[in-house]
Write a protein that binds this DNA or RNA. Structure first.
Ligand SMILES: NC(=O)c1ccc[n+]([C@@H]2O[C@H](COP(=O)([O-])OP(=O)(O)OC[C@H]3O[C@@H](n4cnc5c(N)ncnc54)[C@H](O)[C@@H]3O)[C@@H](O)[C@H]2O)c1
Ligand SMILES: NC(=O)c1ccc[n+]([C@@H]2O[C@H](COP(=O)([O-])OP(=O)(O)OC[C@H]3O[C@@H](n4cnc5c(N)ncnc54)[C@H](O)[C@@H]3O)[C@@H](O)[C@H]2O)c1
Lengths: 251, 251
DNA sequence: TACCGCTTGTGAACGCTTGCACAAAGTCGG
DNA sequence: CCGACTTTGTGCAAGCGTTCACAAGCGGTA
């Protein structure tokens, strides 16, 4: 029973630890990993602009974080900056790519080729970043064989063989919520250990499977919470200030 | 200059604080808010199944979290459980909805009606959860006037008037990355204070605007990191492991 | 009414993240 | 070659968020 973000499994810290890149990777906080991916994107843009060197302050600004945090994040992956100068953009890019495992291609399978699945299959941003979409699956027989984004849709029943054959390492679930757990189970038995889930359900997976979820309704509700909080604050301010009248929204 | 998740602004804690729901909302950690949204979804499912009462243990299981965490999260919004029994599902639903501000409708505008924008506009899950899609915008003249998901697309230049007229409170950016900052600026000047951004860029917004980003490439890369870490561990274990036994590779 | 068993709500400890502040380390101009 | 200036890398402290553990409270039962 390890559900989303199941972090707390007691993996033993190996007793003999050569302070090595391998071991270092283990120590990187998940929050830092997410930011590294953002830095990488910003840096890629810099490369295209012909920038060769960048300071922590500049990069932090472009990535929307504190520069101290940025330096700490980079320190997790090693010391590749030059004091007094900054970081060599290309060097940094290659080190982040190495740490994130982007030196290797990760084939992606999308399951559920409906509204969202179509958009994902047609999206050029994945292949270009080292995540080729290698397989598409749906349960609808009318869809099987139809090419979407250049790849023919397979029937969900062929998931095991097709995933194995195409070495799928990441599964994306874009089916209706009712089907998501079943699809997830099939992906897992097909050997997929990383899952990106768009369906609004909490997936149950074995400990060794990594699940990340993208839940738009939750995002919306978080925004809604902030709207409400803000409205309450404004109301509160008015109450503390003058009478009960005001509809003073932001300037 | 406050970028994504700009939390650390020195908002003054109002001097006279009646330990009231309003004030309480301020104290809820963001992480807890996200989980409350998940609990809400699970509970909604429970209501449909006719469940009237649920214990923290059960709900925690269904939501994929620790039961202590769940109770603490619920304690942020007040004490609505019955010791020895559990929580009344409907009561809990209504309290969470109130805290998340879901008693009010939040109109959504989607900008950029391409692959992703179409999927979002056609998605039934938003309206049904209190987030009616009230406006669609694109820069492409061929699209303006064309109805997508029942709503005609407006031209981006009309964003200010249309947003005001339809009381849009949440803006969704689904344009290419190059256009995202400009679109964001226009949404902000149109009075939109909450933005959900799908474009892979770091948006710069004023402090009072709340931005959440959904960055699929980052999600993929986090998964990739775990794949890599796992591979390294396996390699490491074998090297270290021949001597030290602990060869707990994956089952 | 008094007791018992169950579940909540929460104080306190713990651990992870963040942010500060500064020594170390490098560059560059002279 | 030296000294001034810039920027990194990191020890440390503060702040959050998570988890533990248990007293308090409630319903059911005799
Ligand atoms: N469309 C969006 O913008 C959007 C936004 C947020 C969340 N989501 C979520 O993403 C998921 C997909 O949304 P959608 O709008 O694309 O739905 P959709 O109904 O358009 O597409 C679902 C597809 O999944 C297929 N499917 C159903 N059961 C299957 C199974 N067992 N195995 C394989 N394929 C199966 C269907 O044939 C269909 O093609 C849903 O869970 C939805 O809640 C969608
Ligand atoms: N499609 C996906 O599955 C997917 C996945 C992850 C991220 N994204 C991101 O979401 C965004 C949209 O992706 P997409 O595949 O839908 O792209 P798309 O090219 O299909 O659609 C973009 C739309 O935005 C419109 N547009 C361009 N400039 C505009 C402007 N200034 N104002 C208003 N509209 C404008 C275009 O006319 C087009 O209709 C991109 O930033 C992409 O990186 C998409």
């Amino acid at each position: 029973m390890a559900a989303q973000r199941g972090e707390g499994d007691g993996v033993v810290t190996s007793p003999e630890a050569p302070a090595d890149v391998r071991e270092r990777a283990r120590a990187i906080p998940e929050a830092a990993v997410a930011r590294l991916a953002v830095y990488l994107r910003v840096l890629s843009g810099m490369v295209e602009q012909g920038v060769t060197t960048i300071s922590s302050e500049e990069l932090a600004g472009a990535a929307g974080v504190n520069s101290a945090k940025l330096r700490k994040d980079l320190s997790y992956i090693g010391s590749y900056g030059t004091r007094g100068v900054g970081y060599d953009v290309e060097v940094l890019v290659s080190h982040i790519e190495r740490i994130l495992g982007l030196t290797r291609k990760h084939s992606v399978a999308v399951v559920g080729i409906g509204n969202l699945g179509h958009a994902l299959a047609n999206y050029g941003g994945f292949p270009s970043r080292g995540f080729p979409v290698a397989a598409l699956f749906d349960i609808d027989p009318d869809l099987t064989g139809v090419p979407v984004g250049g790849i023919p849709v397979n029937h969900i029943d062929d998931i095991t063989s097709v995933c194995a054959e195409r070495e799928v390492s990441i599964g994306v679930i874009a089916t209706p919520p009712q089907a998501a757990q079943a699809v997830c189970d099939r992906l897992v038995s097909a050997g997929v250990q990383c899952i990106l889930n768009f369906a609004p359900v909490v997936l149950q997976v074995p400990d060794y499977v990594e699940v990340r979820k993208v839940d738009l309704a939750v995002e919306m509700q978080i925004l809604s919470f902030h709207v409400a909080r803000r409205a309450d604050e404004a109301a509160g301010d008015v109450v503390n200030g003058i009478g009960v009248d005001g509809v003073v929204i932001r300037p």
